[in-house]
Design a protein around this nucleic acid. Structure first.
Length: 198
DNA sequence: TCATTAAAGTTAT
DNA sequence: ATAACTTTAATGA
């Protein structure tokens, strides 16, 4: 899932290094590059008028970011910020479109990646608008787990802080924490030294 | 049911 | 040390 790094390098992709808090792109700017994370974590976020943060998504290794806006030629609706030090490969838009034309595998891959994002967004949206803190949290955990092979109970460690979980689900941090504790009592999650397992 | 405020404890840099 | 994150409790919509 994602374009081979060696291949990207062979077509003159540029390797960029970012530190924590650096912007990869900003809300409102026009997409010029295809970005693919080599290592590190990136969040797509937006701040509401009242200063409350809403995180659209958190991406890691091998994941591309902002492709749909690049393809559409629309300004980014969110910022992209490095959560950890990141290494990211970027490829100019013309070169990227050329690759899509010339390589069916790449086209197919981007196509299914986009389809998957759409699915995840719709699933989350459905739950977030239907209220109920517990269901919202279960849903992001469920979506996270989908990309793993092991579906056993408590087999995955949630790679997000409680604050991030709150910002992803539109809950307050306190509600997120209390709900997670309730879920622990109900045996829905397991908590081992502050790490959440689902 | 959930957000907000405030205060304090804990962990990471 | 200082900032970032976690937790609890009280209060109110």
């Amino acid at each position: 899932m994602a374009i081979k790094e060696t291949f990207l390098q062979s077509v003159e992709a540029i390797e960029e290094h970012y530190n924590v808090g650096d912007f990869i792109f900003r809300e409102g700017s026009t997409p010029q590059f295809y970005y693919q994370i080599v290592s590190g974590e990136v969040k797509l976020n937006r701040f509401a008028e009242d200063g409350k943060e809403f995180i659209q998504n958190i991406f890691t290794d091998k994941s591309s970011i902002g492709e749909s806006m690049l393809i559409l030629g629309k300004p980014y609706p969110t910022d992209a910020v490095a959560l950890t030090p990141c290494v990211i490969l970027k490829l100019g838009r013309n070169r990227f479109f050329q690759l899509l034309q010339e390589h069916r595998e790449i086209f197919t891959d981007i196509y299914s990646t986009l389809a998957n994002h759409t699915f995840e967004k719709q699933t989350l949206m459905r739950v977030i608008t239907s209220e109920n803190a517990e269901d919202r949290l279960i849903e992001i955990m469920e979506l996270l787990k989908e990309s793993y092979d092991n579906k056993d109970k408590f087999s995955i460690e949630i790679p997000h802080t409680r604050q991030q979980l709150a910002s992803l689900t539109g809950l307050s941090i306190e509600t997120a924490i209390r709900t997670i504790k309730k879920m622990e009592k109900k045996n829905i999650v397991m908590i081992k030294n502050r790490k959440i397992f689902y």
